[in-house]
Write a protein that binds this DNA or RNA. Structure first.
Lengths: 217, 217, 217, 217
DNA sequence: GATGAATGAGGCTTCATTCAT
DNA sequence: AATGAATGAAGCCTCATTCAT
C-alpha cells in the first residue's frame, strides 16, 4: 500500500525471507517440471540455499507444496469478499472489470502456474485440492454467481441459471490461457489478452443480456 | 500347499490383445495417480500380467504413455474432417449437435482421462503435447472455427472473430467437466450434462446470433 | 581324412547339427561381447533358431560356455601327443614347425577367440578354467618342454630350465596375437604373422642354442 | 534390541578419501569377478559405504571403471619417459633393470589386476581400451623399442627388427604372470619371479646379443 | 543455524529360464 | 519338436530425508 520508493535490495538475504524464497523457487520448478520431477536439491539451489536448509522451514516436499497453495490462497480468500460488496455498479461494467482483472492476471505465467500445478496434482493431494477448491474456486464461482444473480435481479440480465452461467464466464478464460500456455496455442497478435477479452466480453454479454438492452458496453 | 490337481495356467498366451490391455490399465492408473506416481508393476497387475511382460510390448513407461496418446489420437484424427463436411445444416443446429456430442463424451471420466493426463504431463513430454495439440486440439478448434465462419457467411451469426469465439464454445465445456471432475464440483442434479448443455447453448447462441434472429432453438 | 569332395550344403539344417551351430553362434558373440553381455536370444537368432530351441540342447547359458570349451579342447587333447612323438627331427626344425603352425592358427581371430574368452571368464568359471588349463595349456607347455629337453639332451640347446624357457616360446606369440587383436596393435605389414615368426624364431633360437652351433636354420 | 547407549556413528564424513576408496574396492572386485559380475552394492560394502554414496562420486558403474583406468594410467604416463632418458647405460644392464622392475610389479596381483581387467573388458569399452593402449602399452613398447635400437646402434645387440623384438621382451612376462595368475600355473619354487627373470634374461640376451659378445651380464 | 555427505527404500529395466500352445 | 510369450529375480540408479560436522 505504501510504496516509499526505496526498493528493497535483492541481495539482502534475511532469515525470515527464506521460506518465501523456497516457495518461489518451488513454484517455478513445480510449474516447469511438475511436483514429482522436481528435486528438493533443485529447489534449494534455485532458492540459493542448501538442501538441508530447506528442511529447516518445511518438513517435507509435500509440505512445501501445501504451503505454496496456502500462500496463494490466503490473499485471495481475503480479497474475494470485496468483489461481492463492490457490486453496487452496473452488472455489465462490473463483469467487464472482473474479466479484465482476471485476464491480466492469468496472462502472467507466474500467476497461472499455481492453478495449473494444483490441477496437475489434484489426484495426488486430494485434500489440498479440496482446500484450493473451497478457498479459491468456490469463492470465485460464488462471487461471479452473485454478480450474475444481482444482474438478473436488477433486470440487466436475462433469467439464466446463474450457477451454470458462471461456466460461460470462466470457461473461455480457461480455454484461452490454460490451453494457450500449456500447448502454446495462438501466439499471434489476434490472441492478445486484450483482444481476447473484448471478444469474450462481447459474446458473453450478448448471451446474458436481454435482447432489448441493446449493445453491450 | 494343497494341490487340488486342477492346474491353474500361470498365464494365457494372448499376444494380440495384450498391448491394448496394457494401455487400458495404464490409462486408468495414469488418470488416477498421474504418470510419475504410477508404477509399471501396478500397470502390469491391473492388466493381469507380470511386470516383465509389459516390456515385451513397450520398451519403457514413457513409450506406454506415447502409445496411449497415439491410440487416442488416431480415431479422432480420422473422424474430425466429417465435422466440417457435415455442415450443410443450419449453423445453430450443427453447433448444438456438436456441443451435445462433446458433452456426452466428456461427461464420461474415461474419455476425459486422456486429455487430463496430457494436460498434466505436457511439460514433461513436450513433443507429445505438441502432437496431441496438432492432432486433436488444433483440429477441433479448426472445425469449430469453420462452423462459426460458415454461420457468419450464411448470416446466422454476427460477424465475430471466429478464432476467438471458439474459446466461448470450448471453454465452458472445459470449466464444467474438467474442473468438475478434478475438484468434484457441483455433483448436484442442476449440473447434469444435459442441463449444463442447455444453459451453455442458450447463452452461447444468444451471444453469437444476430439480435433480430429471435430466440435460439 | 577322407574328403570326398562333395561339400555339405550349408542350407541343410539337420537336427544333429544344431548344437554345433549354437556353439558357433555363441563363440562369435562371446568373443565379441563377453559372456555376460551376450543374450541367449542373440545366440538363438545368430544360430537361426528360437530361444526355446537353445534350451533343448543346452540346459543353461553356462552349459553352452562349458560345451564350447570342451568342444575346443577335445581335438587338441587328441592331437597333442603327436607333437611329442614326432620329435625325431632336429629340435630347431621341430620348434620352427610348431611356431609356424601356432602362428598360423593364432592369427585367425576365430581360433584366438576361445582362449581369449576363457581368459576373460576364468574367474567366473574356475573349474572350467582349470579344465582348459589342464587339457590345453598344460599339454602345450608339456609338449614344448619336452621338445626343449630333447634338444638339450641331443646337444642342440644349451642346458636351460626347460619349464621356464617355454615362456620364451609361448610368450611372444601371446604378446603379438592376443594384444594385437585386443588392442589393435601394429596392423602394418611389418607385423605380418610371417615376419613376426621369423623375428621370434631368430631371437628365440639364438637364445636357446649353443654359441658354437652357429646360425639357426 | 539391546541399546548399549554408546552411539555408533552411522557414517563418517570423509569426502576427500571416498573416491579412492571406492576405486580400491572396485579394483579388487573387478579383478576377482569381472566388471559385469560385480554389483555396485558389493563395491559399496567393500568400501564401507552405502550403495547411494557411491553415486555421489561416480555417476555410473562404467564411470567407476573409467576412473580406475585413468587413475592407473596417470602415473605411468608421467614416469614412462624416464625409461628412455635413463638409457645412458649399457643396453644389457638397462634391459635387465627394466625386466626386474617389471617382474617385481607384475608379480603383485594388485598391479596385474588392472591390465587383466582392461584386457577382459576391452571389447565392451573400446574407447577406454584404446586410451589404455596409447597411454600404457604404446609407451611401454616404445620405450623398450628405443632401448633395443640404442643397443643396436651401440653395437651391443645384433641388428634385429626392434619393434618385433619387443614381443620377445614382453611376451614371456605376460605368459608367466598373466597365465600364472589366471590359471594358477606353476606355483612351485622353480617359478619364483626371480628365477623366471634369470631364465628369461638369459635366453633373451643371448637371442639379442652378438655371438662374440660373450656371456650376458 | 547451515551444510552436504550418507542412507536406503523404491522404481525402472533386463534377461535367463520356463512352459502353454 | 519348436516357438516365443510370460515370469520374476536381480541389478542399476534416484532422491527424499537424516544427521555428523
Amino acid at each position: 500500500m505504501m510504496d516509499t520508493g526505496q526498493s528493497e535490495p535483492k541481495w539482502r538475504r534475511r532469515a525470515e525471507d527464506r521460506p518465501d524464497e523456497v516457495l518461489d523457487a518451488s513454484l517455478k520448478l513445480f510449474a516447469q517440471n511438475g511436483f514429482a520431477a522436481t528435486k528438493v536439491e533443485d529447489i534449494a539451489t534455485e532458492a540459493g540455499i542448501s538442501k538441508g536448509a530447506v528442511y529447516r522451514y518445511f518438513s517435507s516436499k509435500e509440505e512445501i507444496f501445501e504451503s505454496l497453495v496456502k500462500r496463494a490462497i490466503a490473499p485471495i480468500a481475503e480479497r474475494t469478499e470485496d468483489l461481492a460488496r463492490t457490486s453496487h455498479e452496473d452488472s455489465a461494467v462490473l463483469l467487464k472489470a472482473v474479466l479484465t482483472v482476471a485476464a491480466t492476471k492469468l496472462s502472467d505465467p507466474d500467476t497461472l502456474a499455481l492453478p495449473r500445478i494444483v490441477l496437475q496434482e489434484a489426484s495426488r493431494f486430494p485434500e489440498l485440492a479440496q482446500t484450493y477448491r473451497r478457498q479459491v474456486i468456490d469463492r470465485a464461482i460464488g462471487a461471479l454467481e452473485l454478480i450474475i444473480e444481482k444482474g438478473i435481479a436488477r433486470g440487466d440480465f436475462r433469467p439464466v441459471n446463474a450457477r451454470l452461467a458462471v461456466r460461460n464466464v470462466i470457461g473461455p478464460l480457461l480455454a484461452h490461457f490454460l490451453l494457450g500456455q500449456t500447448f502454446g496455442i495462438d501466439r499471434e497478435a489476434s490472441a492478445s489478452p486484450h483482444s481476447f477479452i473484448e471478444s469474450h466480453y462481447d459474446i458473453l454479454m450478448r448471451g446474458l443480456m436481454k435482447p432489448e438492452t441493446g449493445e453491450p458496453q
